[in-house]
Design a protein around this nucleic acid. Structure first.
Lengths: 195, 195
DNA sequence: TGTACATCAGTGAACGCGCGTTCACTGATGTAC
DNA sequence: TGTACATCAGTGAACGCGCGTTCACTGATGTAC
């Protein structure tokens, strides 16, 4: 019994996700993906029913992976302000270390994938929103629409990341991490615990 | 002497911008635009050298119009906190009243137009950034990278607008205007002037 | 060990389609004498 | 007023291209007897 087929599937997915985040989903053709994997286009259809199915599978997995890492980061502490800080720091680190992984956050918000993304229960923004929601129930922060607060926080962070990506802000996410953590705490309405 | 040509140019631009914001720039074809205007595709080339030129002209004008309205809003007061509040309120109103005009802000940040957008001196984000920069020089707020602060503010606002657009936040921008004004003041580091 | 067959990742050639664009042409309107 | 010509917005037909996808086929590997 051979596992070759599974291996090839993985190789296709790895190359496809790389091309998608590098050039944008719409700009990458089936021929591009096949070439990157080192095969001919028709053979992709032995592994995926269609280009669309490949895209969907990739994004579902991307969200899940990102969401899990956010949950993991948040689990370090029962205190909301520390959870939020951990999540923001994680996003900063992912940006600096692995642009591919990071760009899922961007793509999940824009680029015609918004409708797909919003519906996915593991959407990274949804994870942040749930943490905020829990903090409100718990009485850690004032009760407002959690989606509104999540939007402001995520928006602020990924906009900065975008500016860094495009060179408009000349820094790394690591360098502005502390600023972002403080800003997000402010947006959430966390009482500043430091001096 | 007839001004028909100029009229037709305007009609093409009006329909094109409507289609672009409705479906995304990449998803709209020359044939779509021609059909919306009520002419055959080849005739578009009597008015624009190429599809690309039309897109560029449209976006340059969109940025300019948006930028001018932001400048106008900011000019109501010499006090930075009031300028910032006025700009945020303007964006909220533009969103609720004219989605077409508003979506330029979104498109200027994403969708493969990022490079074009960032270079335009009238880019709306650039206007916000300049106001922040001036406030720092003036000593109204702490000195940091103005692009960083502008990114956080604009990101927070347009992310909320995006969530409202997609129904994930169930509200109007008008309803969350006060929240956004307060949040942006906090992000900029303005001392809260109210009670 | 040798032969016959099944399996299956991968391929070459081609499909229909919609794209941006070109070009020779039309037909209404304006101007000159 | 009537005729000849210039102008120019708009059109029909077609172009080459890259797209996603299909399909009959290949050729290496594994299995049965």
């Amino acid at each position: 019994m051979s596992l070759r087929q599974g291996d090839t599937r993985q190789r296709i997915k790895r190359e496809a996700v790389r091309l998608f985040v590098e050039h944008g989903v719409e700009a990458v053709s089936v021929r591009d993906i096949a070439a990157a994997v080192g095969m001919k286009p028709p053979n992709l259809y032995a592994h995926f029913a269609s280009r669309d199915e490949l895209v969907r599978e990739l994004f579902a997995e991307g969200y899940a992976a990102y969401g899990e890492r956010l949950l993991e980061a948040a689990s370090i502490s029962p205190i909301f302000s520390e959870q939020l800080a951990a999540m923001v720091r994680l996003i900063c680190r992912l940006h600096d270390e692995d642009v591919v992984q990071f760009r899922f956050l961007l793509l999940s918000q824009h680029g015609g994938l918004a409708h797909v993304a919003q519906d996915d229960p593991k959407n990274p923004v949804g994870i942040v929103q749930e943490a905020i929601s829990a903090a409100m129930v718990h009485g850690d922060i004032a009760v407002r629409d959690p989606a509104l607060v999540a939007a402001m926080i995520v928006g602020a962070v990924i906009q900065v990341a975008t500016f860094i990506l495009y060179g408009r802000v000349q820094a790394t996410m690591g360098a502005v991490e502390a600023d972002l953590v403080a800003a997000c705490a402010g947006l959430a309405g966390v009482k500043s615990s430091g001096a």
